[in-house]
């Protein structure tokens, strides 16, 4: 009995030491690591951003130019060509723009809606709050992917509709966070005194509450971008994407449906997958980094003296 207990107690200690010494995963160092990850995420994300902004600098050919189809990687075509003879590397580079655009545009829409609804219901409380939050709950229980599939089937597949649908369906968590934070800020002295002095509600929301929300919104925005990119990729893979605008998801979809997998052409289906994964990861890392910083700020606010 005693021995067993001692054994149970000893083991986690060894584990922890192992982690600390060999993998450099000490909890105390965690914060510093987080900072590093954040910086790394930012750096690599910038790379993707530049790809998206100036694809012509990096792509060897135009994505619509045709060569011999189904070619293996060579010096002329670093990642080979696809079924209709387009250079895959060029496609990949140009795809970054579409994927990132979907991510950012729908995240902007959802952040904007979430911000407005959260701010409004948190600031005015009472009946508007209950109505808006009730509405938010209704949106929250809508199953998103099935709805988008149905919408995609009825409306003709277009990237703009995809952005709109993704944006309009993913603002609830942002609205909730903004609302709770607004409720908190509303009770601080500066908001109360601004109300006393007769500043308009609009002024208070814009100049007193909003600046204090930014560091909550930023990580949320980042994570929304990442999740929108993933949603876009999965929808495109299911064939609900816009074929005229080739995103990474659509490349994957084509690689799957036009024989990339059967012919074992890894250079066709692996790169877009890796790109999506990395890009989403970098964005999420940035988001986590911002979140961590926010927590630090919060802590400093609490422990005075």
């Amino acid at each position: 009995m005693m021995q067993e207990e001692a054994y149970i107690r000893e083991r986690p200690r060894k584990w922890k030491d192992f982690l600390a010494h060999n993998l450099n995963l000490d909890i105390r160092k965690y914060k510093r690591n987080l900072k590093k990850l954040n910086r790394g995420g930012l750096f690599l994300f910038t790379f993707f951003l530049i790809l998206a902004l100036f694809p012509s600098l990096f792509a060897p050919y135009s994505p619509t130019e045709r060569f011999i189809p189904y070619e293996a990687p060579s010096t002329a075509h670093l990642l080979g060509t696809n079924d209709i003879g387009n250079d895959i590397l060029s496609e990949l580079v140009y795809g970054a723009r579409i994927s990132l655009m979907v991510g950012f545009a729908s995240a902007s829409i959802s952040t904007l809606i979430g911000l407005m609804i959260g701010l409004f219901s948190g600031y005015f409380r009472g009946t508007p709050d209950e109505l808006l939050m009730g509405f938010t709950d209704v949106v929250l229980i809508i199953p998103k992917i099935p709805l988008i599939i149905i919408l995609g089937a009825f409306l003709h597949p277009s990237i703009w509709i995809l952005i709109l649908v993704l944006g309009l369906l993913s603002w609830e968590s942002i609205a909730r966070v903004v609302r709770s934070k607004t409720l908190q800020i509303r009770e601080t002295g500066y908001v109360k005194s601004a109300r006393c002095m007769g500043f308009s509600s609009f002024h208070i929301m814009v100049s007193d509450i909003f600046p204090n929300l930014i560091h909550v919104l930023l990580p949320k925005f980042m994570l929304a971008t990442a999740s929108a990119m993933i949603s876009e990729a999965s929808l495109s893979f299911l064939g609900l994407g816009d074929i005229s605008m080739k995103s990474w998801g659509i490349m994957l979809s084509f690689a799957f449906s036009r024989g990339g997998f059967i012919r074992d052409m890894w250079w066709w289906y692996l790169p877009p997958g890796i790109c999506i994964t990395l890009c989403v990861m970098f964005i999420a890392l940035m988001g986590f980094g911002f979140e961590g910083r926010e927590k630090e700020n919060g802590k400093r606010g609490v422990d005075s003296e």
Binding site: G189, Y190, K192, S193, S207, D208, P211
Partner: peptide, 10 residues
């Protein structure tokens, strides 16, 4: 005028 001076200003 409120109690906590630390949050009297934005």
């Amino acid at each position: 005028m409120f109690q906590d001076p630390t949050d009297a200003f934005n």
